[in-house]
């Protein structure tokens, strides 16, 4: 084997170039993880089908048919699963398999690795919603956002929620323990948050302490933001604060992005902790 290079070398590739390669790789690997793909795309649709079959005749505060109320919640849940849960568990597994050790040895900028995850999440999310929304629209007569402004709301809530979820997924992947124990912890947290945040039940039906606890976490705000895109304007009166609270939603989700970034910067490791 020849061609060792001992003269002057060109500078290493930019973080942006590596990030692009990462996005392509993450999407390839994701597409080949059959179980993950099926779960990611089927879960929201299945939930829609099951819960509408059970509670389809119910109405939520403000005479909102159940499927309409539920679409907002299940869209928010899908975003959390595809960002927070999938990212957190795959990073823990990648670290355990030694994939991250290789990236470290290659001098990969962590930002390029993170960017790869974000890119993969956004593409997978677009595909997930492109499947869920028609099912809700044509299967359950759920009206889509009424105008461009509501579509824009839908867009920024989804992207901000996915960003917060991805960053927090990267952050929790640093939890100690094996990949499978990290996976269990993340899944349990995600499940509890779904119940606390008004995904399955009307948020106002939850006990007060649960509402207050949920308000600390992003999923409640993500769900509320989604309701503001899908439900009629007057339904806002039935929120805890009597309105959609877009400003506060941006603030809380944005704060979680920043908190997540700080935690990542301080705790992200390419390898498992020293023995």
């Amino acid at each position: 084997m020849t061609a060792v290079l001992t003269g002057t070398r060109p500078a290493p590739p930019s973080a942006a170039r590596i990030a692009l390669a990462r996005v392509r790789l993450e999407l390839t690997v994701f597409a080949r993880e059959r179980q993950l793909v099926v779960f990611t795309f089927a879960y929201p649709v299945l939930m829609m089908v099951i819960f509408s079959a059970i509670l389809g005749g119910d109405e939520r505060p403000g005479d909102i048919p159940f499927p309409q109320y539920f679409l907002a919640g299940i869209a928010a849940t899908g975003i959390m699963l595809i960002s927070f849960q999938a990212v957190g568990t795959t990073i823990a597994a990648e670290r355990e398999a030694g994939l991250l050790a290789r990236l470290q040895l290659l001098g990969t900028p962590p930002a390029a690795y993170f960017a790869g995850k974000v890119g993969q999440v956004l593409v997978a999310l677009a595909a997930q919603l492109a499947l869920l929304l028609p099912v809700a629209r044509y299967g359950y007569d759920v009206p889509m956002p009424v105008d461009l402004a509501h579509w824009l709301t839908f867009g920024w809530v989804a992207v901000l929620g996915a960003l917060a979820g991805t960053v927090l997924g990267i952050a929790v992947s640093a939890l100690p323990g094996s990949a499978s124990s990290v996976t269990t912890g993340i899944s349990a947290l995600a499940l509890v948050l779904q119940f606390f945040s008004g995904v399955f039940f009307g948020f106002l039906e939850l006990p007060g302490w649960m509402q207050q606890l949920a308000a600390l976490f992003p999923l409640k705000w993500l769900t509320q933001g989604m309701r503001s895109a899908f439900l009629p304007e007057q339904a806002g009166a039935f929120e805890v604060a009597g309105g959609w609270e877009h400003g506060r939603t941006v603030l809380v989700l944005g704060a979680w992005v920043i908190i997540g970034l700080v935690v990542c910067a301080r705790t992200f490791r390419w390898r498992r902790a020293e023995g």
């Binding site: 290079l5 500078a11 590739p13 170039r17 590596i18 692009l20 990969t108």
Partner: peptide, 11 residues
């Protein structure tokens, strides 16, 4: 092919 992107002098 993927890991070639991490170096400026890939074989």
């Amino acid at each position: 092919d993927h890991f070639a992107a991490y170096t400026s002098t890939p074989r």
